[in-house]
Design a protein around this nucleic acid. Structure first.
Lengths: 155, 155
DNA sequence: ATAATTCCTCAAGTTAAGTTGAGGTCAAGA
DNA sequence: TCTTGACCTCAACTTAACTTGAGGAATTAT
């Protein structure tokens, strides 16, 4: 089945630079939906190259697979996505990106104040009250997340 | 042992807003190094409050535990860190932060170009060659990371 | 036609950053 | 004193994003 308009998983892997295993994994996450041959082998459309490339870029931007999957669901499932389809999604990403940059910038400004005072002392220092809304893309205590009570107030 | 100048793990937990389990975990990572009582219970110094608070803030900034640990090793181990000690580290963080913001901003600019062309087609689109140096804080294929070959060049 | 690839499906392993629980010891208040 | 409540250790579970490996079937190359 070589030289068809569809691609085998290996060919797609080569085209995108992804590992075969990664593509299979992405399939389970709904990022691509190949058809199967009689014998059960996956067959991808050429448009899937772009889908996956988009996934890579989106990850670069800091989006999780599930966030990306959510965005991609807005792509047409029947026809191959058009330029306009991708543009719409990209614009959405731009918004998130703006927010993240803003969050980090705000944080940096507070850090500056903090370098000035050298403190890191609660109450006085803005840093400890900084982790608001914006960039909750963070790690930190997992099951505590979202209800960190009061931080220390002493030096 | 209540009312000493040292703190029990529970007291430290309350002061920092961390879970007791998290503090024990941080100890295994070398972020704090409490002494033990005769009976084996941990005793923390007041300065550990600040150490842990710093960890929280650093995580907010997007640093991993091991990165934070690396920074903290520069803190004096014998005496309690001074204002100057913290300031030095904060300045270091500021550099990293700058780099990350720059990286994201550059990425955003390329995205803008991309929205314009709606393409996401390799060669023409800068996005695919964007993931350079700066913000390799990303996810993406783990064991491939660092040697992604060539991305597709077709539409 | 046969060997070498490629592909398939599971199941299980990996890292980060913690959490949860079991089983047992220690300390503080009634 | 006795009984909670705080601690201790150690092992196992959690999520995300994949990889690795085992055991087999289908393709492709010679």
């Amino acid at each position: 089945m070589k030289g068809t308009d569809t691609l085998s998983i290996g060919e797609l892997a080569e085209r995108t630079g992804l590992a075969v295993s990664a593509i299979r994994f992405y399939e389970t996450k709904g990022l691509v939906a190949p058809v199967r041959t009689e014998s059960g082998q996956r067959r991808f459309m050429r448009a899937d190259i772009r889908r996956l490339s988009f996934v890579l870029v989106a990850q670069e931007f800091g989006f999780s697979i599930s966030e990306i999957a959510a965005q991609m669901e807005k792509l047409p499932d029947n026809r191959a996505p058009t330029k306009a389809d991708w543009t719409r999604i990209s614009r959405d990403f731009r918004k998130h990106l703006d927010a993240r940059i803003e969050g980090l910038t705000a944080l940096r400004d507070k850090l500056d104040g903090c370098i000035g005072c050298g403190c890191l002392s609660m109450k006085k220092c803005q840093l400890y009250n900084a982790g608001d809304a914006a960039n909750r893309h963070g790690r930190g205590p997992r099951y505590l997340m979202g209800d960190r009570p009061d931080l220390p107030e002493e030096l």
